[in-house]
Amino acid sequence: MIVRHFLKWIGNARVSERVAAASALARAFLDHELPFEDRCEAEAALTLLLDDPSSKVRAAMAEVLSLSRHAPAQIVAALAADQADVAGVILIRSPLLTDTDLIDRAASSDGAIQSLIASRPFVSMSLAAAIAEVGELEACLTLLKNDGADVASLSFRRMAERFGGDAQLREAMLVDRRLPSDCRHLLLVRLGEALKQSPLVLALMGPARAERITREACVRASLTLIENTPAQEHAALIEHLRLRGDLTASFLVRTIAHGKVDFLGSVLIALSGQSDRRVRAILASGRDVAVIALFRSAGLADALHRVFLRALKVWREVANGRRVAGAQEVTWLMLKEIGAGPGQAGPAERDREAAALIKSIHLEVLRDNARGHALAIAAA
């Protein structure tokens, strides 16, 4: 009876009347006290309204049905596949849409629809992975800002790889505490690449100097990153650095010079294949012979063994409370170890490259310390 009267009336009804009727009919269907036969007729009438030429009518249905688990599944599916102003509330709210439904919709839609899906109160890890893989930049930004999204480390990496050149995405990712350390490093590298290609930077410095300064800035940022990386994430960061070709001898020299002994231990574990307990024990209190054997098994060049060992001994004394020292004192002692300190004859041929690197680190530390001292005086 409802359908018969509805069919006779709807053909001549104005849009506003059809909108009101669609909303009332949807609410009536969700009324649990409605008799079964009337519910079936209401469902039939709602199905008919899916073909209404006005999106306002379909949007009215979607608004009412979007939060209910008892809405007709076929109607919800049709509304979810409608245009954005109709599908929006369904895609954001409906509990009837499965991850499979949402992933399929995201894969076949543009950034606006993908963003609606990414803004759901809860986004599962699998749905977040799909958005990270196929979503447009707009959708990935929405996903990162959604506290209800369960984003896996791999999904962070894919977004960093795909859109790491975008400043908005870098900012959104870098402030996210869930961001894995290797992704954080990748974004720092992307930021350096963006800076050195900036027309302003190129005009002020020239290509060669811009390349050198941004490279140095990325290395120093990597050292800061290590400080804030939990030990359990060291392996992932090390593998990332290794695959990028950034796990170089010069990087490890900087690491030990700045006292990142725990991270160096993780690197030696990864490169030597020896157990965590054994490597940590050797670094903490092992004899020189054992330490050098560990360096050699990790593939560290023989020319660097002496400076690494000298730095390690100083940091041991600092850790044990027998000495107060920082990177400035350590790099000075490393230079003395290879005859490159003030008043010494100079390094041997094989040590010249290491001496140049350690001296540059020493000068950087001197500048940083002096800058910090000046700022402290100004703030007093």
Rank of each mutant, 00 (worst) to 15 (best):
T224C: 15
I226Q: 02
E227C: 15
E227G: 14
E227I: 15
N228T: 14
N228L: 08
T229Q: 10
T229V: 10
T229P: 05
T229W: 08
P230T: 09
P230G: 10
P230S: 09
A231E: 14
A231Y: 11
A231K: 11
Q232Y: 13
E233A: 14
E233G: 05
H234V: 01
A235T: 13
A235Q: 14
A236T: 04
A236G: 14
I238P: 02
H240Q: 12
L241Q: 06
L241V: 08
L243C: 10
L243T: 12
L243Q: 15
R244I: 01
R244E: 10
G245R: 07
L247H: 00
T248W: 05
T248N: 04
A249Y: 10
A249F: 10
A249G: 05
A249V: 13
S250N: 14
S250P: 02
S250F: 12
F251N: 03
F251D: 02
L252E: 07
L252V: 03
L252T: 01
L252S: 01
V253G: 01
V253Y: 04
R254P: 03
R254S: 14
R254Y: 15
T255M: 11
T255S: 13
T255Y: 06
T255L: 13
I256T: 09
A257L: 09
A257K: 04
A257S: 15
A257N: 08
A257E: 10
G259W: 10
G259K: 04
K260E: 14
K260C: 09
K260Q: 15
V261Q: 07
V261S: 05
D262F: 04
F263E: 01
G265L: 07
G265Q: 04
G265S: 15
S266H: 07
S266E: 07
V267H: 00
V267A: 06
L268T: 01
I269E: 04
I269D: 00
I269P: 00
A270C: 08
A270L: 08
A270H: 11
A270E: 12
L271H: 07
S272Q: 09
Q274D: 13
S275F: 11
S275I: 10
S275C: 09
S275Q: 09
D276Y: 11
D276C: 07
D276R: 11
D276W: 08
D276K: 12
R277G: 00
R277K: 11
R277P: 00
R278E: 11
R278T: 07
R278Y: 06
R278K: 13
R278P: 00
R278D: 12
R280V: 03
R280H: 12
R280Q: 10
R280A: 00
A281Y: 03
I282Q: 05
A284H: 13
A284M: 08
A284G: 12
S285P: 03
S285Y: 09
G286D: 03
G286N: 05
R287E: 14
R287T: 06
R287Y: 06
V289A: 10
V291Y: 08
V291P: 08
I292E: 12
I292S: 04
F295C: 04
F295T: 00
R296F: 05
R296E: 13
